[in-house]
Amino acid sequence: MPTEHYIGLMSGTSTDGVDGVLAEFEGAAIQIAAAASLPLPAELRRDLLALNATGLDELARAARAANGLADCYAQIVERLLAESGLAPAGVRAIGAHGQTVRHAPEAGYTLQINAPARLAERTGIAVVADFRSRDVAAGGQGAPLVPAFHAAWFGDRPGRAILNLGGIANVTLLGEPVRGFDTGPANMLMDAWAQRHLGQPYDRDGTWAASGHCHAGLLARLRGEPWFSLAPPKSTGRDLFSPDWLRAHLEATPGTKQLAPEDVQATLLMLSVVTIAEAIDRHAPDTHEVLACGGGALNTALMTALDQALPCRLASTAEHGMPVQSVEALAFAWLARAHIHGHPACLPAVTGARHATIAGCLYPA
């Protein structure tokens, strides 16, 4: 099979930036030829976050935000091409996930802000987008999307789990069949709290959380969210785990009115840790190794707490040749290739769909 090049682009639930990779595929072998990241402009980030709730003039605001996101995607593509020395004609397709602003598979829809035609026009490269809708139409969750890629990269290793620590945490359980599901918040609530109280996009290394103390009553109330008790397949996002959700629990928990902000941050970190550990113990008790990726894998406090909570070995995907911040972007390069070759990549054992589906829609160059 001839060598093919694909680009993968991902802006995740944290809504803080865009990661991109240019991947080289030769048969089953995959190599990263170039990687780049770009923070989202503050105004665009604000607009995307605002679209997670209803408001005036939503359709026009969504269209403008989609164009702005596509322009950021195009900048990443330009950087990847410059770093690799490839011309646009040398790239078969771009996999561009878009920014999720609504996710309600139980109501039959999921919505990712994107402008793939604009991206194809700006880059001169075909774009594969809208990866979730067909699976939702087949009765699935439309998420998580990456387990099939995890299995392709990390192999059929029963007992190994891949843990993505993005805005939302999701876990892939390798084996036959491959399974995967969201476990709840990873960084999303911590990032929002840090932005509110520190004026920073996130709590670097979890230093602020480490300076606080977990509030047992608040943690117990947060863990009481019924979603955590649902059996897979399941997925979630800002529709549920929003700042308003946190605010309501803070107001309803005795003894939190005078709680220091860093203590809330410490409690949110432990919420992520405990719900991840409980989900793995409940649904994959034979797991002997967890490989973490995503921005949360760079959070020292989070990883330390996870290492203490998990009954098995915790490592990062970097130890297996995969930089932690490149995993999801590479997954969308892989998903774009699967679409081009007509390979189903949405797995019923993961999403709960009636049958496997080919993910995405093609926008030719």
Rank of each mutant, 00 (worst) to 15 (best):
F149Y: 13
G295W: 10
A137K: 05
A277K: 11
R313Q: 13
W334R: 05
G255Q: 08
P41D: 09
R179E: 01
S326W: 14
A260W: 07
A34L: 00
L145V: 04
E58D: 05
A137W: 05
A28D: 14
Q99S: 14
W227H: 08
L362V: 03
L163R: 06
P2K: 09
A120D: 06
M1N: 01
W245M: 13
T3R: 01
L59R: 12
W153E: 05
A148C: 12
F228R: 11
G296N: 08
D57K: 05
T357I: 00
L240I: 10
L222S: 15
N164I: 13
P226K: 01
R204N: 09
N299F: 02
G224F: 00
W245G: 13
H343E: 00
A231W: 10
A74L: 07
V264A: 11
I76L: 11
E225S: 04
F154Q: 01
V327H: 03
Q75N: 10
M10P: 12
A252M: 02
A151R: 10
L240C: 08
G124E: 06
H320Q: 14
Q195C: 13
T13A: 10
G8K: 03
H283V: 06
A356P: 01
A93S: 02
L59V: 14
S326Q: 15
T267R: 13
G155H: 13
A23G: 07
T267K: 11
G140K: 05
R247C: 04
A209L: 11
G139M: 02
S37E: 09
L51A: 07
S235E: 06
L49V: 12
A29L: 14
D47P: 01
L81W: 09
P348R: 02
H97G: 07
A117L: 13
H213T: 15
H355Y: 10
H343W: 02
V327A: 06
D307R: 15
R118I: 13
S37T: 12
A29E: 15
S229N: 10
A151D: 10
A301G: 10
W227L: 06
E58S: 01
H215D: 14
G98A: 09
Q308V: 09
E24P: 10
A87T: 13
W227I: 09
E43Y: 06
L163T: 07
A194F: 06
A34C: 07
G296K: 07
C72Q: 15
G206D: 12
L81I: 12
A89F: 06
A266F: 08
A252Y: 07
R46L: 14
C214Q: 07
M322H: 10
P177H: 05
P88Q: 08
P105H: 04
I168D: 12
R223E: 15
A50E: 09
A186M: 08
T110Y: 00
A194L: 11
L291E: 03
L22G: 13
E176K: 04
L174Q: 03
A137Y: 02
F154W: 09
A305S: 15
P116Q: 14
P348V: 00
T267C: 11
S211K: 11
G184V: 12
P41L: 07
E328F: 15
P254K: 01
L218Q: 08
V21Q: 10
R157S: 08
M190P: 02
L22D: 14
M10Y: 12
D281Q: 14
T3L: 08
L347Q: 00
G140W: 02
A353N: 04
Y202L: 14
R132W: 11
G206F: 02
G159I: 04
